[in-house]
């Protein structure tokens, strides 16, 4: 816990995976959880409609106040957020990787980092330590791996699904929290007008196309068991030699990690 650190957590409206109803977003609430664990000076910010009920769900995690930049749906939030962050000058800004509603391009943290000139670390799972203006964060990689990255403050990070679970949202604090509306200049998202939105079409399943030219080949492709593609067979050799062959393959496939 670093009490003197200023964190901003950006919140968006989520979409329930089953019902499609608005709810707190998975990654955003994990980001808020991470922020609240790291420092006691956390500002939660939402750019959008201040009357959004979902904000109460975030507030129920123990927030006294949520700042809302009052913007209509068609506005581009990056400019307004940039101005806001410039004024606040926090040390760390946390976001989700990809919004659950809207364009969900995942570009927001990158655009803010470009505009503010701060570093951007994607998909973090944990903030390990913060010392001398540098933070050590763990980045979540595919296959459950973690990478340790050192980054200068201030920075922006997007929080991965593998970060710690968010705490429950409680009704009491949710109804007690104040929603502070901040009116800002509105920058309209021009590109949006040229787009057509429609319900997601079902994507065609990719078929396995047998590129056989003759009936005999097609028959073989349909019935044949997968046969060996010329794997190496080591037989009647001492066990040490056999183990060496396995070991060498493991090293060339670079699955043996250095301690």
């Amino acid at each position: 816990m670093q009490p003197d650190l200023k964190l901003v957590s950006l919140l968006s409206t989520g979409r329930h995976p089953k019902s499609g109803r608005a709810c707190r977003a998975n990654q955003d609430s994990r980001a808020l959880e991470l922020a609240m664990k790291t420092s006691s000076q956390v500002t939660a910010v939402h750019a959008g409609n201040p009357d959004n009920n979902v904000l109460r769900q975030y507030a129920g995690m123990g927030l006294k106040k949520i700042a809302v930049l009052d913007l209509p749906e068609t506005a581009d939030p990056t400019q307004s957020l940039k101005h806001y962050l410039d004024e606040q000058s926090p040390d760390i800004v946390l976001t989700g990787v990809r919004a659950e509603d809207g364009e969900s391009s995942g570009m927001l943290p990158y655009l803010l980092s470009e505009k503010l000139g701060w570093a951007m670390v994607p998909r973090i799972a944990e903030i390990q330590s913060i010392e001398n203006g540098k933070a050590k964060v763990l980045q979540a990689l595919p296959r459950g791996q973690r990478r340790l990255i050192e980054v200068d403050l201030p920075f922006i990070a997007s929080v991965d699904n593998s970060a710690a679970e968010p705490r429950q949202s409680a009704f009491g604090p949710a109804s007690r929290a104040t929603i502070e509306t901040i009116s800002t200049e509105i920058f309209t998202d021009e590109a949006l007008a040229g787009w057509q939105l429609s319900a997601a079409r079902k994507r065609p399943k990719r078929l396995k196309i047998a590129k056989a030219k003759t009936a005999a080949d097609r028959f073989k492709a349909a019935t044949a068991k997968s046969q060996s593609k010329g794997g190496t067979l080591i037989k009647d050799k001492p066990a040490s030699e056999q183990a060496k062959a396995i070991f060498d393959l493991l090293v060339t496939e670079s699955v043996i990690k250095q301690p």
Binding site: S228, G231, T232, I234, D236, Q242, A243, A245, F247
Partner: peptide, 21 residues
């Protein structure tokens, strides 16, 4: 063995021991 890219024909215990070494 037919599926494998590398197959070693031998007793698992002996090979694993050597691999550990």
């Amino acid at each position: 063995v037919k599926r494998a890219n590398l197959s070693v024909i031998g007793d698992s215990e002996e090979v694993l021991k050597e691999l550990l070494l």
